[in-house]
Simulated scan of single mutants.
Amino acid sequence: MQTIKWKRIKDFPHYLVSSTGEVYSEYKQGTLKQFNDAYGYSQVNLNRHSKKVHRLVAEAFLPNPYDLPEVNHKDENKNNNRLENLEWCTSKYNMQYGDVERRSFLSQTRHESWKVYQYDLEGNLIKIWKSAREAERNGFNRRSVGRCCNGELKQFKGYIWSKERR
């Protein structure tokens, strides 16, 4: 059984990361809750900054003598952030690693677009967009439209946005 090692996180001196992928806060005196980003990677909030856990582990424990830009999960499990599962690599290597076809299919289905309904503030339907990306091409911020569709914002740019017809 391997010993768990802890190191301070660069630029965040009151946080430590372990070789097993846990993040400890001296403020809260405990490990931080991790959440997945839109792509399935584990993240934590450090002083209101979202940081990917695999990157924190790699930066703390893995030497990077060739200054490689990306961190690969050897077993392709984005939530397995143990030191022995990570390696520094090039973007090309990372893209071609493992089961590329399966990952590509999952990525496409995960990011499948949905229709976006735009209403005025009185609830009158203005337009049906094929996707938030289409609304973005017409001058609306895609993330803000998405946040409205997910219930995080009530309105954006004077409009109500929804995934479903009201």
Rank of each mutant, 00 (worst) to 15 (best):
Q2L: 13
Q2F: 12
T3D: 12
T3R: 12
I4Q: 15
K5H: 11
W6Q: 11
K7T: 04
K7I: 03
R8I: 13
I9W: 03
D11L: 09
P13R: 09
P13S: 04
L16N: 12
L16W: 09
V17Q: 02
V17L: 08
S18K: 05
S18D: 01
S18H: 10
S19V: 02
G21C: 07
E22P: 03
E22H: 14
E22T: 10
E26M: 12
Q29D: 14
Q29H: 11
G30L: 04
L32K: 08
L32M: 12
K33I: 10
Q34V: 06
D37T: 04
A38S: 15
Y39R: 14
G40R: 06
Y41M: 04
S42L: 14
S42N: 15
V44G: 13
V44E: 04
L46A: 06
N47Y: 09
N47R: 11
N47P: 03
H49N: 15
H49M: 12
S50N: 15
S50I: 05
K51R: 15
K51D: 06
V53Y: 03
V53R: 04
V57F: 10
V57H: 14
A60E: 01
A60R: 07
F61P: 09
L62V: 09
P63S: 15
P65H: 13
L68V: 03
L68A: 03
L68N: 07
L68P: 07
P69D: 01
P69F: 07
P69I: 07
P69T: 11
E70N: 09
V71K: 02
N72M: 12
N72I: 15
H73Y: 08
H73A: 11
E76K: 04
N77Y: 02
K78L: 13
N79Q: 15
N79R: 13
N80I: 07
N80D: 15
N81A: 12
E84G: 05
L86V: 09
L86A: 03
E87K: 15
E87P: 05
W88R: 07
T90W: 07
T90P: 07
T90I: 10
K92N: 13
K92D: 10
N94V: 07
D99I: 06
R103N: 15
R103G: 08
R103M: 10
S104G: 08
S107E: 09
T109L: 05
R110M: 13
R110P: 05
H111F: 15
W114V: 13
W114D: 09
W114M: 12
W114N: 13
V116S: 00
V116H: 00
V116Y: 00
Y117V: 01
Q118L: 05
Q118R: 01
L121Q: 03
L121H: 00
G123T: 02
G123N: 07
L125A: 00
K127D: 03
I128S: 02
I128L: 01
I128M: 01
W129G: 00
A132Q: 01
R133K: 15
R133Y: 12
E134R: 01
A135F: 00
A135Y: 00
R137E: 13
G139K: 01
F140A: 00
N141C: 14
R143C: 01
R143D: 04
S144V: 03
S144K: 08
S144H: 11
V145R: 00
G146D: 03
C149Q: 00
N150F: 06
E152Q: 14
L153Q: 08
K154V: 05
Q155H: 09
Q155T: 08
F156M: 01
F156W: 13
K157V: 05
G158R: 06
G158N: 09
K163D: 05
K163M: 06
E164L: 01
R165F: 04
